[in-house]
């Protein structure tokens, strides 16, 4: 078995240790004897995304966003939408997650059109929502807890019928109002969680990997791993967050 990962725009979408997610997915596949390749799509690159099983989109600085949007409009945006419709797996963090929605409207009211691949949109807020937080995944994934670090001024609102990735336990999540965090649409997993999110949340990582394997091979059995270090890191942060210590 093999999973081909494509890191979208690593040169601009690379904030807050998010590349650790790729490392985590790669290792957890390799430890199970599943081959993993990691490729990247950079601004200006043109290649068929149907070659890949799993896409990673990280968060970025506002300053570099315009360069990126131009490239999406020039064709890669349509490729990404087709890959989503095709059931390919995406992990989208923060800015990468917002980018899947219809638009971002700044606090001053300037609207910036995004991909519109998922029915959601984001409104810029005055205050940045920053700190460690925790949420609980949906029932279908086994309702595990996820800990991470959120740092965003955008408030994301999901369209009706679009499922969140989880429910906020502590912190703000999508908008600090409705208790939702992230999005789960087809095989797209969107979240505000930096950290990077996957290493400390091996259950979420495996759920994402399974979705890519199931699409490709029809079935996916992931052998259990020794997650001692992962669990220790997860538990130590979860405890601090739930106790309000950080």
């Amino acid at each position: 078995m093999q999973v081909k990962i494509c890191h979208l725009y690593p040169e601009v979408l690379n904030l807050y240790g998010d590349r650790g997610n790729i490392l985590c997915m790669r290792r957890r596949l390799e430890w199970r004897g599943i081959e993993c390749t990691v490729d990247s799509l950079r601004i200006g690159d043109r290649k068929p995304l149907s070659d890949y099983d799993l896409f990673f989109v990280g968060g970025g600085q506002d300053f570099e966003q315009e360069v990126l949007l131009e490239d999406l409009r020039a064709g890669n945006g349509e490729e990404i939408k087709a890959a989503i419709a095709d059931g390919r797996t995406f992990l989208c963090i923060c800015g990468g997650y917002q980018m899947m929605g219809h638009y971002y409207e700044t606090h001053e009211g300037v609207r910036c059109d995004f991909l519109g691949a998922i029915d959601l949109h984001t409104i810029g807020g005055e205050k940045r929502l920053i700190d460690n937080y925790a949420f609980r995944l949906s029932e279908e994934s086994g309702a595990g807890t996820v800990v991470g670090f959120e740092n965003h001024s955008g408030r994301t609102y999901l369209g009706s019928g679009v499922d969140p990735l989880g429910k906020v336990l502590r912190g703000n999540g999508n908008n600090g109002e409705d208790g939702t965090e992230g999005v789960h649409y087809k095989n797209v997993f969107g979240t505000y969680s930096h950290g990077p999110v996957l290493p400390k949340n091996p259950g979420l990582c495996d759920w994402i990997l399974r979705s890519a394997l199931e699409r490709k091979y029809g079935t996916a059995q992931l052998a259990p791993l020794d997650d001692g270090f992962e669990t220790a890191a997860h538990e130590s942060v979860l405890q601090k967050v739930m106790n309000g210590e950080i």
Partner: peptide, 17 residues
């Protein structure tokens, strides 16, 4: 305080536990 996070980082950097 975040020794567990550092420990995990090292595991993924390829250190034997």
């Amino acid at each position: 305080d975040r020794a567990e996070d550092m420990q995990l980082r090292l595991k993924y950097a390829g250190a034997e536990e």
